[in-house]
């Protein structure tokens, strides 16, 4: 009879929620690769292999300037890693990638070999949202992978609720929006209305390469190439899709709930 069975099962299994952030983060799949790192010093001035191979034109090598890899456009296909002869672009295996400012995602300059991770919200918003953040998720033409990996944060392994973060049904109940997808023209009105329906103060989180810069569909006329065209964004989480750990890390960083300092490991 399922009643006894489920109770016994629960008792046997105990608590299945991961210890992170109080413990170590769960390991990323070994082939995942995590964030990319650009060591511009190793670049050969005449080489442009990574530029031609990148499907979303995320890498630029303007004349006289070092290589610039825009992690916001990156879909983490790792073609550039494979093709680079000097190993200037490498995979770090680090899950932490969330940033507050769009320019922080552009790697390549001397001090920007790796991502400058997100600072927490300012004092006022942290007091409001730090212990209770209600988000309204809007899928503005997302392919359902970012949505699925956001959804999984609500399951018992990740348990987003223990941080006071919850996804709500109505924007009226929300403190901010979590947007996935490149923001198609067909969703423009709905997104604007949803944003308008959220009471102030509000935050906007863009999850996934599509929401930041259009993802694999970058340049198509059917959409706006990401959220920034329409709304001010407070947090960018790159990935295609970002691993749930990356999303969680980004959210916690935004709320100032992580103990470790931001920056390079």
């Amino acid at each position: 009879m399922f009643v006894q069975d489920t109770l016994l099962n629960r008792l046997k299994r105990g608590c299945e929620t991961m210890a992170y952030p109080k413990g170590a983060a769960p390991a990323l799949p070994d082939r995942h690769g995590g964030a990319l790192r650009v060591d511009a010093a190793r670049c050969d001035a005449k080489c442009g292999a990574c530029v031609t191979v990148c499907p979303t034109e995320a890498i630029a090598r303007p004349a006289g300037k070092p290589v610039a890899l825009d992690l916001g456009r990156c879909i983490f296909c790792a073609e550039c890693v494979t093709v680079c002869p000097t190993k200037a672009i490498t995979r770090t295996g680090d899950h932490r990638m969330a940033v507050r400012r769009r320019e922080d995602l552009v790697l390549g300059d001397a001090s920007k070999e790796q991502v400058r991770l997100a600072q927490a919200l300012d004092e006022k918003l942290r007091r409001l949202f730090g212990r209770s953040l209600r988000l309204r998720q809007v899928s503005a033409a997302g392919c359902n992978a970012c949505e699925a990996d956001t959804n999984v944060l609500g399951t018992i392994g990740w348990d987003l609720g223990r941080f006071g973060i919850q996804f709500v049904a109505s924007p009226r109940h929300a403190d901010g929006l979590l947007i996935t997808g490149p923001v198609s023209k067909n969703m423009e009105l709905a997104l604007k209305k949803t944003y308008a329906a959220v009471p102030d103060p509000k935050i906007v989180i863009a999850v996934g390469a599509c929401a930041i810069a259009g993802g694999p569909f970058i340049g198509h006329p059917q959409h706006h190439n990401g959220t920034s065209a329409l709304l001010p964004v407070d947090l960018y989480i790159p990935g295609c899709p970002p691993h749930p750990l990356t999303i969680l890390d980004g959210l916690l960083r935004l709320l100032g709930r992580l103990d470790e300092p931001t920056g390079i490991r």
Binding site: S170, R172, M187, A190, T194, A196
Partner: peptide, 8 residues
Amino acid sequence: APTWDCGQ
């Protein structure tokens, strides 16, 4: 603001 209407 108008009543929330699912973005219609």
